[in-house]
């Protein structure tokens, strides 16, 4: 990040940096205009005055392939990093692919490790969490009180959080899918809310079309965004693609998080979206978590990607 000066990096450069290196530029979203607010050190030095929460994603417990033979270990490192934060976050969002193959032992291990953060965790499922018949394991553990395949909403710190499920009823040749029932629920969920309520939507597969050739997008994601159009501040947090990507469209900021297990290639740079094997000493620079700050009254969320190392 050394090539970004204090006197205003150009936006393209910052985006490239955020997208392909995934290290810690602080982004603030103010009036729909993204601004780079400085490096992690400066951001951490500022006292937290609002709501701070975390996003963790794609822990893939059970994955043991060369790209990372020890996904449990790197999740433990991520939790240790969370526990070392100077300001304790209010809670954590997990944007899916908790497990690799939906095995009970994988969920058990994930739960045991994540519990060490002593944070409330709000989950949404990834496709890897729904591999058992009838999707019982996820629902028993994380789906209590949710609707349909596991969608729900809650309020915290003046922000309305909406957890969506876009990994069921997938159609041949298609992308992620929300479906009519979930969209109807969403319409009802936000109907009576004031347009000034900041909205955070979280789901596994990106709601925006990142790269359809690899299935990185949601078929009816646009319909969900349409329902949120009247809100002044909408932040969409996704996982699935195991890399940081960011986009701002009008009042909507889109962000995808790093995985804690293994990186995936930038769109189109490899024959497939499969796991990327990086040199062992580089792995922790492409894994991590994201911390998000919301300051009441300012309608802006600052997202900081925190790699496990570097």
């Amino acid at each position: 990040m050394r090539d970004i000066g204090d006197d205003g990096p150009n936006r393209r450069k910052v985006l490239e940096c955020m997208t392909w290196v995934g290290t810690g530029v602080l982004w603030t979203i103010a009036g729909g205009v993204p601004r780079s607010g400085g490096l992690i050190g400066e951001a951490m030095a500022q006292p937290a005055r609002g709501l701070s929460f975390l996003q963790i994603s794609d822990s893939h417990i059970g994955f043991e392939k060369p790209a990372n033979p020890n996904a449990r270990g790197t999740l433990e490192e991520a939790v240790a990093k969370i526990n070392a934060m100077p300001v304790k976050p209010a809670f954590m969002l997990h944007t899916g692919d908790i497990s690799h193959l939906s095995k009970p032992a994988e969920f058990d291990d994930a739960d045991r490790i994540i519990a060490q953060s002593r944070l409330d965790v709000h989950y949404v499922p990834g496709e890897h969490d729904f591999l058992d018949e009838e999707r019982k394991l996820y629902h028993e553990r994380y789906g209590r009180g949710t609707q349909g395949a596991g969608w729900y909403s809650f309020d915290a710190g003046g922000v309305h959080f909406i957890g969506l499920v876009n990994v069921v009823d997938l159609k041949a040749g298609g992308l992620g899918n929300l479906g009519a029932d979930q969209l109807a629920w969403l319409a009802a969920d936000v109907k009576s809310r004031s347009a000034s309520t900041p909205i955070v939507v979280f789901a596994h597969i990106p709601l925006w079309t990142v790269y359809p050739e690899w299935g990185w997008g949601t078929e009816d994601g646009g319909r969900a965004l349409e329902l949120l159009k009247r809100f002044g501040s909408v932040t969409v947090l996704n996982g699935h693609i195991h890399q940081v990507m960011q986009k701002v469209e009008g009042n909507v900021a889109f962000h995808t998080a790093l995985s804690t297990a293994f990186p995936q290639p930038a769109p189109g740079t490899a024959p497939s979206p499969g796991p990327v094997k990086v040199p062992d000493d580089k792995l922790r620079s492409v894994l991590g978590v994201a911390s998000i700050d919301f300051v009441q009254g300012k309608e802006r969320l600052a997202i900081i990607d925190k790699p496990l190392q570097g």
């Binding site: 496709e127 890897h128 591999l131 997938l170 159609k171 041949a172 040749g173 298609g174 992308l175 359809p212 050739e213 690899w214 299935g215």
Partner: peptide, 12 residues
């Protein structure tokens, strides 16, 4: 018979 990957539906 058309088929796809139910995890990655872009695979057909």
């Amino acid at each position: 018979y058309e088929y796809f990957c139910s995890l990655h539906p872009h695979m057909t």
